[in-house]
Amino acid sequence: MNQATELHSSTVRQISLIATTEVRRLLSQTKGLVTLAAYVMLWLLILLFLVRDAVNLMLHPDAKDIVMQVLGEGAMSNLFNWPVEEFAMYWVFALGLQPMFAILLGAGQFADDIQRGTFRFLSLHASRIALFFGRFLGAMAVMALLSGATSLVTMVMAMVRDIHLALPAVICGLQVWLVILLMLLPYVALMSLLSVIASSSKQAVLYSVLFFTGLSLLVWLADVTVAPLAYLEYVMPGTETQQLMGVMPTQAPIFLKVALIQTVAFLALGFYAFKRSDV
């Protein structure tokens, strides 16, 4: 055995290598670049045709009164308190749409590679713990890049409208980006679990649809059947979305405790399933 291999690679280094490979897949491969382009184009359309129009409406002097009259005091009225209106609207769209992207992109973490046998090669050279958490962190890094890109475009939009918004836009953009990432953690972790169980990424997406619809139905039934079923709401990622819409990013962390607990739980289950699975 040569000298280089005598040094056992640490798990942390293996995790970092595997996560970096996933980022490279996004940035250097045709398939990844197409995904990136499609994502950015979609967000450009949202930002240019929905967010910008909504910002123009928000800037109207009577807009806040109209919203208060129609919707009352609540989540939507709080959007008028944001220092940068673009980010107020971006926040609403991001809270609704980014989880869907996280589900779609997170579905490919394991299933296809296990079916293709690629993990048979990888598991000869890396531990299962490194493979699992490396892929999870890779998926999170990809989401960080994608959501970071949209946050950056939103910053530019705000600066183009009013250059004096440059500093607040940068601060707001970074805060929103971080909170969105924390909010996405349980979605990606859930997809880590489902992707281990499923036999393809498509099947993992279908499982996620069943997961969300099934649990939503049970929670809804709690009102008419067994009340404790309502606690199942805490199993679903996104329980805090409604509350998040009504607050600024700086106030968001207190609502993200459930998301972090969910992340730990899904990762623990996912790793247990992956460790026991046949590759």
């Binding site: 280089a4 291999t5 005598e6 040094l7 056992h8 690679s9 280094r13 293996q14 290598l17 595997i18 490979t21 490279r24 897949r25 491969q29 398939k31 990844g32 090669f121 990888l122 000869l124 050279h125 890396a126 490194a130």
Partner: peptide, 17 residues
């Protein structure tokens, strides 16, 4: 998605090189 060099290098790096 990756070339032979990229994949074999990754395997070698995972082994500590």
């Amino acid at each position: 998605d990756f070339t032979l060099e990229q994949q074999l290098s990754l395997f070698a790096q995972l082994r500590g090189m």
